[in-house]
Design a protein around this nucleic acid. Structure first.
Length: 515
RNA sequence: GGGCCGUUAGCUCAGUCGGUAGAGCAGCUGGCUUUUAACCAGCGUGUCACAGGUUCGAGCCCUGUACGGCCCA
């Protein structure tokens, strides 16, 4: 918001500011911090669910809550307000009888929707049966000066919901619920990882060389070192260095950054989960991934079936498994002959109207055909395994099938949710793969990885046979919370600056630091 | 990057054929001791995203820009 002069402000804000002045004139602090609530709305609803008005009034349970006023219905000598805390809402009843003329008049005239109050009172029920706190004393804790959105329509403008997430969270229950679920999903993953004896580690965000996958990095600069850095695009290579170091089971769940487009499924910064376990094979990777996800669903949602859009998704283990070749044949309608060699793949692509890259080899063509022909059909959780070697530069290949990598991806609702493989631990092979990537980059693949010499050096010390798993946490949360856009599961999704001035602010700060 | 759509009061939205801005909620004043989108009486909320253009006259037509949404790459 731009800086307005006071007369430009909405009338409501001017009125609220005047109320603050009046309060101060009366010696009332509009922002005190001496109130301690001891009860929460949801607990009260649970605790007193069975008790009727007479029972409650006879017992006169004393309670103390604090929260935001969301609704106000005032009569001459009685007022009902609805208070919202982090657990939900509870109705408050203010009366002249309980509070006296001045105490009631303050509620009527000075307390507004949006204000934060603390109250003491006793439990009761209204004649209509609603559980209510009969307030015996109260305190204004924070005066709010901006009006909340319409109590019935709420806030639906998507831009404002993202830019002012705090307002969205105040008024939209679904939004609050989604982010609570996100938090529970993350903490349950951490719980399970701890139960499985994994160690959570932190690796650098600033990389000299953004590796571990193929994506365009962000570039930043270290002023004191006078040196450019990339923001990480994956966690992989540092975590595997730790496996070399003897930490047999490690994982990290954190933000990575990719300098690419923004869409309903892409945000420039997003959360990756990666775990590495020494001595795990691809089979164990797949078993663990399905256990982790189905266990998260069970613990967080108390079920194994969740709705996404029109689909019922069944997360009970085991998930379906098929090789990429089987998928192309069963789902893609290809024949063995179609998959014979590069020429037959070209013919298949031409027949289905699929464009293949100039630089693509057999493996890349094979994978592209899979993406085009099969991905849209993968709704229920399904592992696709056995990837072409050339599309998997960090994965071990089968000893008896050197052109195929011990790699699998988990698909749910057409999205790639997880990626896992037996890690390539032969330093010479890995060096050759890096070299091939460099060649591929020269040939025009702008997603090829750079050569990481220190990673080769680490492998030369010896990395035990290891299974690695990567999970796109935001997409997982989307699938589990029925959220069609990644912005619905990111508290503060990427937005362009609201005003040109904000772009200038960023530049000014950089210039100051550089000076 | 391309296509389509959107931007009007604090919020949700209407605005006819181009004739100078409208509703509900919120707010303000008054009334009301059991409301559940409380009710009754009264008051008005405004850089119609921004900048140009056409026109006697633009929220409406045209051009450009910004921001956002959806789809495609």
């Amino acid at each position: 918001m731009t800086q307005n002069t006071s007369t430009d402000l909405p009338v409501v804000i001017q009125q609220r500011r005047q109320k603050i002045e009046e309060l101060r004139a009366q010696g009332v602090n509009p922002f005190p911090n001496d109130f301690k609530p001891s009860d929460f709305a949801a607990d009260l609803h649970t605790k007193f669910a069975e008790q009727d008005k007479e029972a409650l009034q006879a017992a006169a349970h004393e309670v103390c809550v604090a929260g935001r006023i969301m609704l106000k219905r005032a009569f001459g000598k009685l007022a009902f307000l609805q208070l919202q805390d982090k657990t939900g809402r509870i109705q408050l009843e203010f009366t002249v009888n309980a509070l006296g003329d001045d105490g009631f008049k303050f509620v009527d005239k000075m307390l507004d929707i949006g204000d934060i109050v603390g109250v003491n009172g006793t439990m009761t029920r209204t004649n209509k049966g609603e559980l209510t706190i009969a307030v015996t004393s109260y305190e204004l804790l924070t005066k709010s000066i901006r009006p909340l959105p319409d109590k019935w329509q709420g806030l639906s403008d998507v831009e404002q919901r993202y830019r002012q997430r705090y307002v969205d969270l105040i008024v939209n229950d679904e939004s609050r619920n989604t982010f609570q679920k996100r938090c529970q999903i993350l903490s349950t993953i951490r719980q399970i990882m701890t139960e499985e004896d994994f160690m959570e580690v932190e690796t650098p965000v600033l990389h000299h060389q953004a590796g571990g996958t193929t994506a365009k990095p962000f570039i930043t600069e270290h002023n004191a070192l006078d040196m450019p850095f990339n923001l990480r695009i994956a966690l992989e290579l540092h975590l595997k260095r730790l496996v070399v170091g003897g930490f047999d089971r490690v994982y990290e769940m954190a933000r990575v950054f990719r300098n690419e487009g923004v869409s309903t499924r892409h945000n420039p910064e997003f959360t990756m989960f990666e775990s590495y376990a020494a001595y795990w094979t691809l089979q164990e990777n797949m078993q663990f991934t399905e256990t982790l996800i189905s266990e998260v669903v069970k613990r967080v949602f108390g079920t194994t079936t969740l709705t996404f859009g029109e689909h019922e998704l069944d997360f009970s283990a085991p998930f379906k498994r098929m090789t990429m070749r089987e998928a192309l044949i069963e789902l893609g309608g290809a024949t063995d002959a179609d998959l014979e060699n590069e020429q037959t793949l070209d013919a298949l692509a031409a027949k289905r109207g699929i464009k293949l890259e100039q630089w693509a080899d057999y493996g890349h063509k094979f994978a592209t055909l899979f993406e085009e022909l099969c991905e849209p059909k993968l709704i229920q959780p399904t592992f696709i395994y056995d990837f072409p070697k050339s599309t998997s530069p960090l994965a071990r290949t089968y000893d008896d099938r050197p052109e195929w990598a011990e790699r699998s991806e988990l698909y749910v609702h057409t999205w790639e949710l997880a990626n896992m493989f037996s890690e390539l631990n032969d330093p010479q092979d890995q060096a050759e793969r890096f070299a091939a990537q460099v060649e591929q980059a020269k040939a025009g693949d702008d997603e090829a990885m750079p050569y990481d010499h220190d990673y080769i050096r680490a492998l030369e010390y010896g990395m035990p046979p290891t299974g690695g798993i990567g999970i796109g946490i935001d997409r997982l949360v989307m699938v589990l919370t029925n959220s069609p856009s990644i912005r619905d599961v990111l508290l503060f999704p990427h937005q362009r600056p609201e005003t040109p001035e904000q772009i200038n602010l960023t530049k000014v700060e950089n210039a100051e630091e550089a000076a």
